[in-house]
Amino acid sequence: VSKLITEALSVSQERVGMSLVALKKALAAAGYDVEKNNSRIKLSLKSLVNKGILVQTRGTGASGSFKLS
């Protein structure tokens, strides 16, 4: 899941990052079952932020906008 998230964010052209909703849409378009794996998406977002791979530009927790650091 982390690999899919970083790939989706690297393609994004948004300056402020990608919102959680837009990220879920991009994952669904890539063929990932978002409804079934919603908790996995949130956990991997939090772990990527803690590792310093992603930066959360808006919001708290697993909601808001994210971009690559």
Rank of each mutant, 00 (worst) to 15 (best):
V1Y: 05
V1D: 05
S2Q: 04
S2D: 15
S2H: 02
S2R: 14
S2Y: 07
S2A: 03
S2K: 15
S2I: 06
S2W: 00
K3E: 13
K3C: 03
K3F: 01
L4M: 14
I5S: 00
I5F: 04
I5L: 06
I5Y: 00
I5Q: 00
I5G: 00
I5M: 04
I5K: 01
T6Y: 05
T6R: 11
T6D: 05
T6G: 01
E7V: 00
E7Y: 01
A8T: 03
A8Q: 01
A8C: 08
A8S: 03
A8I: 12
L9P: 01
S10R: 08
S10W: 01
S10T: 13
S10K: 07
S10I: 04
S10V: 07
S10A: 11
S10P: 00
S10L: 05
V11G: 09
V11R: 12
V11W: 11
V11F: 08
V11S: 11
S12N: 06
S12H: 04
S12R: 02
S12D: 13
S12E: 03
S12F: 12
S12M: 10
Q13C: 06
Q13F: 01
Q13W: 02
Q13V: 04
Q13R: 10
E14A: 02
E14T: 03
E14S: 05
E14Q: 02
E14C: 00
E14P: 02
R15F: 05
R15M: 04
R15Y: 04
V16P: 03
V16G: 02
V16D: 15
V16A: 14
V16L: 11
V16C: 15
V16Y: 11
V16S: 13
V16Q: 14
V16M: 10
G17H: 09
G17E: 13
G17K: 15
G17M: 05
M18R: 15
S19K: 12
S19V: 09
S19M: 08
S19D: 14
S19R: 06
S19P: 04
S19G: 15
S19L: 09
L20C: 06
L20I: 12
L20P: 00
L20F: 13
V21E: 14
V21M: 12
V21L: 11
V21D: 13
V21R: 15
V21H: 14
A22D: 09
A22I: 01
A22W: 09
A22E: 00
A22Q: 13
L23H: 00
L23Y: 00
L23F: 07
L23K: 00
L23E: 02
L23T: 00
L23N: 00
L23G: 00
L23Q: 00
K24W: 02
K24L: 03
K24F: 02
K24I: 01
K24G: 02
K24D: 00
K24V: 02
K24R: 07
K24N: 04
K25P: 00
K25R: 08
K25E: 10
K25V: 01
A26C: 08
A26N: 03
A26K: 14
A26H: 07
A26E: 05
A26V: 11
A26S: 09
A26M: 12
A26I: 07
A26L: 08
A26F: 07
L27Q: 00
L27D: 01
L27E: 00
L27A: 02
L27R: 00
L27T: 01
L27G: 01
L27I: 09
L27W: 04
L27S: 01
A28V: 09
A28S: 09
A28K: 13
A28G: 09
A28W: 04
A29E: 14
A29H: 06
A29D: 10
A29Y: 05
A29V: 06
A29M: 10
A29F: 05
A29Q: 10
A29G: 06
A29I: 05
A29K: 15
A29P: 02
A30C: 08
A30F: 04
A30E: 03
A30I: 04
A30R: 14
A30Y: 05
A30T: 11
G31H: 04
G31E: 00
G31D: 01
G31R: 05
G31K: 13
G31F: 05
Y32K: 14
Y32N: 09
Y32L: 13
D33P: 06
D33S: 12
D33N: 05
D33G: 02
D33K: 09
D33Q: 14
D33E: 15
D33Y: 15
V34C: 07
V34D: 04
V34F: 07
V34L: 06
V34E: 04
V34S: 06
V34N: 06
V34M: 09
E35H: 08
E35Q: 10
E35S: 08
E35T: 11
K36R: 09
K36M: 05
K36Y: 04
K36E: 03
K36S: 05
K36T: 04
K36A: 09
K36F: 01
K36H: 03
N37W: 10
N37A: 15
N37F: 07
N37G: 10
N37D: 03
N37H: 14
N38V: 14
N38E: 11
N38W: 15
N38T: 15
S39E: 15
S39K: 13
S39T: 13
S39Y: 02
S39H: 10
S39R: 04
S39V: 02
R40P: 03
R40T: 10
R40K: 15
R40N: 07
R40E: 12
R40Q: 13
R40H: 10
I41V: 05
I41R: 02
I41Y: 03
I41S: 01
I41H: 03
K42G: 07
K42M: 15
K42F: 03
K42N: 04
K42C: 08
K42I: 14
K42D: 10
L43F: 06
L43Q: 15
L43K: 15
L43T: 14
L43N: 15
L43A: 15
L43P: 02
L43D: 14
S44H: 08
S44Y: 05
L45Q: 01
L45T: 01
L45K: 00
L45F: 04
L45I: 03
K46N: 02
K46Y: 00
K46D: 04
K46A: 12
K46W: 03
K46G: 00
S47T: 13
S47D: 11
S47H: 08
S47Y: 06
S47V: 05
S47N: 08
L48S: 00
L48E: 01
L48R: 00
L48Q: 01
V49D: 03
V49Q: 04
V49F: 11
N50S: 14
N50K: 09
N50R: 10
N50F: 00
N50V: 03
K51A: 07
K51Q: 11
K51E: 13
K51Y: 00
K51G: 04
K51T: 06
K51M: 05
K51W: 02
K51R: 15
G52C: 12
G52R: 03
G52T: 08
G52Q: 05
G52M: 06
G52P: 03
G52K: 09
G52F: 07
G52I: 04
I53N: 13
I53D: 06
I53W: 11
I53G: 04
L54I: 15
L54K: 10
V55I: 10
V55A: 09
V55F: 09
V55L: 11
Q56G: 13
T57F: 08
T57I: 08
T57K: 12
T57V: 11
T57D: 10
R58L: 10
R58P: 12
R58M: 10
R58E: 13
R58G: 15
R58V: 10
R58W: 08
R58Y: 05
R58K: 15
G59P: 08
G59N: 07
G59D: 13
G59K: 13
G59Y: 06
G59T: 11
T60H: 10
T60K: 13
T60P: 13
T60M: 14
T60R: 08
T60W: 09
G61L: 07
G61C: 12
G61A: 09
G61R: 07
G61E: 12
G61K: 13
G61F: 07
G61Q: 10
G61M: 06
G61D: 14
G61P: 08
A62V: 10
A62L: 05
A62M: 11
S63N: 09
S63H: 13
S63R: 08
S63G: 14
S63K: 12
S63C: 02
S63M: 12
G64K: 13
G64S: 14
G64H: 06
G64A: 15
G64L: 14
G64I: 15
G64E: 14
S65A: 13
S65F: 08
S65K: 11
S65G: 13
S65D: 13
F66C: 04
F66K: 11
F66W: 11
F66V: 10
F66M: 07
F66H: 05
F66R: 10
K67V: 09
K67T: 07
K67A: 12
K67N: 10
K67F: 14
K67E: 12
K67P: 06
L68M: 10
L68F: 09
L68E: 09
L68P: 07
L68N: 08
L68A: 07
L68S: 09
S69Y: 15
S69C: 06
S69V: 10
S69T: 12
S69D: 07
